[in-house]
Design a protein around this nucleic acid. Sequence first.
DNA 1: ATGAAAGCGCTAACAT
DNA 2: ATGTTAGCGCTTTCAT
Lengths: 339, 339
Amino acid sequence: MAATIRDVARLAGVSASTVSRALSLPGMVNGATRARVAAAVEQLGYEPNRAARGLITGRTGTIGLVVPDLANPFFASVTKGVQERARRHDVAVFVADTDEDPAAEAGLVRALAKQVDGVVLCSPRASDEELTAIAQDTTVVLVNRAAAGIPGVTYDNEGGMRQAVAHLVALGHHRIAWVGGPSTSWSTKHRGLGLRNAVEELHAKLAPVGNFAPTYEGGMAAADQVIATGATAVVAYNDLVAIGLLARLHARGLSVPADLSVVGVDDIAMSSMARPALTTVRLPKQEAGRIAVELLLAMLDDPESPAGTHGELHGELHGELIVRDSTGPAPHNQKGAPA
Amino acid sequence: MAATIRDVARLAGVSASTVSRALSLPGMVNGATRARVAAAVEQLGYEPNRAARGLITGRTGTIGLVVPDLANPFFASVTKGVQERARRHDVAVFVADTDEDPAAEAGLVRALAKQVDGVVLCSPRASDEELTAIAQDTTVVLVNRAAAGIPGVTYDNEGGMRQAVAHLVALGHHRIAWVGGPSTSWSTKHRGLGLRNAVEELHAKLAPVGNFAPTYEGGMAAADQVIATGATAVVAYNDLVAIGLLARLHARGLSVPADLSVVGVDDIAMSSMARPALTTVRLPKQEAGRIAVELLLAMLDDPESPAGTHGELHGELHGELIVRDSTGPAPHNQKGAPA
DNA sequence: ATGAAAGCGCTAACAT
DNA sequence: ATGTTAGCGCTTTCAT
């Protein structure tokens, strides 16, 4: 059996409470005593029982993480970041995968919530109302989604899109197609907005081709519509979509970037392996996970935690344009080019 | 505050012990009483406090999962399988990522072990001795690795390799190169063995080109040596390596499958997106995770659990050959072909 | 079939 | 600065 606090107390010749204090409030105990306790702890290999501690403190030392799909490299990276930072704080993390099922999401979060101190919700598919309701009785931090009054970490989608457009315009592109992700997606909305602004500022034209699944298949499905717009460049919702685009464009006999330049978002590992390698806006994925943990822990430590108090807690991360082979100069005789 | 067992007891007009029994040993309590308790539970939305229960039963209702790298699609899939099955049993899972650091592995497992009922170790990099030591004081199940006396689930590497070779031989290939993974990898060893046997049975020749990192870069590094063997087909350690191979072969001006056929292992999502799409041996990844959970839970439920007793507990999963565009008929004037 | 009592390992008043 | 006491929410003897 594992040693208990009483074993340590006996060995150190003190009471259990002193051991408890020596461990959690070292300042309150005499240096010599503290040393004796430390020695006893060491000798016995004592580790406090978390369940017992949790029973009385009401804290479990555990946080939850909910992601739509672990098999999606973007979410896998965020998860790595969460892991790493949580471990540093000696906090364990329960990971739950909703399998992209929006209906299962809320239930899962609520079930998780009972077993943890707080929850990191990554790219939740739920409505703002549902999120607010959940945040009522649970400490929640959002990743890749903003919702009024709930702390979180998001990406500067506008800035990222501006970089992409600036790059394309510098290459001589004037007509840029945009393949959006799911219409319910928060980032689709903001990327679209950013694109619209950037294109206007830089005197180019935007040709949105609608909403598609945020997957390889989505990209395949969008490709022909992209071609039909007559654009010489296309920005895709994310890298997966961009790679699907690449595949279908190739099948249609178009060459990238000679005929059409392609830009993705995320910079997943696959993007540098694509042919041609994909120009993309790199999002700091692990960093988002790390910040989310810090935010959550800060909320937990702050005694004043009535829902909403932490609304101002918010991190914003910036994307970085990574230029690879899928973007190049605009073709000379492009449709829609100035005469 | 959440309702406690006493609240339920009061509302149902029984004692706390009766509520406890009604919940965990329904057979021991009168039907009518049971119904009253159930009603009270329902009305109060009561959920037993796991920490309190764990304190007395010694079980946490939590298992641990250790993987080398969550960003690797193979491990992400296994993790999904573990998740899904654990949830079905109302068991939570702590996920830990060692970041491919073999040195961190053992420590992580031991730290995890104190907080969970058992641990699923996926593709551990540790030595057999270390694993045995860990299994001494923790309930452990291995995935993708066999070690004496420790239950686990593995893949039938030999069978998978035989399918790949049969496919290639049928296409007229006689000389097959083999790009192995890390020399310490259990699957490298068994895939190599399977290949050797299959090639002998089918009267072909094997040309091993050594050990490489199980990554895209590893495949790039191996490609030129593969070409030098004069083989008309190559089997790669896994899909990532095969895709790296594809990239470097393309750069060298070789065409796949016209000049060289390429086969991978795993069937990660990326494989069907590669150009040409990759022929591969599909491994049931999520299934491995599911079985591991069942194994672990079975061990936990079985009172007789002295280490080693469960050594015979073992699942073996079979791969399935998925033929795509990266394999084709052997070139006519191949080197090493019969005259 | 049910209740009363004890206690899991720990922390947090309350004493001293 | 340290010890004593009580009790977190639950399960489990032991009675009845």
